[in-house]
Amino acid sequence: MLPEQIRGKRIVKFEPTQPGNPHRLTVDQHVFPKAGIQRFTNSDGIVEVFVKKLGRVIPLKPNNAIFCAKRVWDQKTEAGVGKNIEDRFQALARAIENGSVITIGIFEKRIVEEFFSLWRTRHKFRLEGLEDVSLYGVAGDSLTKDQQEILERKHVMYAVDGVMKGRLMASLHVFGYQNQFLQDNQTMQWGIARSYSDEFIVPDCFDDMMIVPLSPKIAIVAGLPDSILTPDQVTVINQAAIARATDFYFARRLAVSPVVRKISPPFELQFDDRPY
């Protein structure tokens, strides 16, 4: 394990649970799903992670804290909203891998875009946190720590002494960003991109570039038809991943994930003009 969780420039306040976490609230919250990282692991169950802060590659397991936010959003957003989006996407990813889905149709498009928006929103939460909100004119309740955790476990929003914790409003932000993203990209088409030999790199977030890596040799890319990519085209995607990574990027084997080549022919990728 790394000695500390890597974050952006802003320090995000962490509120620990009660000792022993009696209500089993999720503390380490994956930004990119653990199931997605596992598809990039080698035979030893690890991925190779280049940590920008350290300037070197570290072999890590998918449950390492580097992949997680530290209780930045609430249990409703984690186990309810987020899990529902993740489950649909993971089912689609398995179907693409086994060949039962060979193109991104209308149904699949919605699943991909909801997942991409969730991934990007979680990354924003991880870097910036969510500010508490003062409810003027609403006193709220003086709840004990145990009472607060019980309510959160039951996916209930609450205020304490007129203040609602920012993480309790995370689901509202998730849906808000998601609805805007879906609206802005109504005509966008996504393609399934495959590589025969070279492998994809996954950043902690692709930010404005609409790409979702599925496995070392499969990615879903906006504005691209279903296709087999050349080594140069895989290089373009990997260069974009490295350029947009905030704290780290990973792959199954970074040595076979090309990042430097003369790019030919030209390869155009799609960007989202609005960050969220």
Rank of each mutant, 00 (worst) to 15 (best):
F116H: 11
P19G: 04
F14W: 12
M210S: 08
T77D: 06
W119D: 00
V212C: 06
Q178A: 08
R120M: 08
E131W: 00
V260I: 10
K61W: 07
A245P: 07
S195V: 03
K262R: 08
I37Q: 06
Q38C: 08
I218T: 14
G36E: 12
T121G: 01
R88G: 15
T235P: 03
R24F: 14
A251V: 01
E268V: 14
E15R: 11
M164R: 15
G129L: 01
Q5F: 08
V57C: 05
V138G: 00
L172P: 03
Q239N: 03
N64G: 08
I111F: 07
Q5C: 09
K165T: 10
V221W: 00
D44P: 01
L127S: 04
N84Y: 10
Q183V: 13
T235D: 02
S197T: 09
T41G: 14
E128G: 02
R110K: 14
E48N: 12
K9D: 13
L224V: 11
G36L: 13
W190S: 03
F89E: 01
T187C: 12
A170T: 07
V138W: 14
S195N: 05
Q186T: 15
E113R: 01
I220M: 04
T26V: 15
Q178I: 06
I11V: 15
D146F: 06
F32K: 08
V47C: 12
A193E: 02
R56M: 09
E199H: 06
K145P: 01
Q29R: 09
F67M: 06
H30N: 10
R122E: 00
V259P: 00
R110H: 07
R110M: 10
L25F: 10
V31L: 05
A65D: 09
P19E: 04
D207H: 07
V202K: 00
L92S: 00
D198Y: 04
K53P: 02
I242Q: 14
S197V: 09
I102Q: 12
I37T: 11
D141R: 12
Y158T: 10
V160S: 11
E108R: 03
Q5A: 11
K70Y: 07
R39Q: 15
R7F: 08
F250P: 00
G176A: 11
Y158F: 15
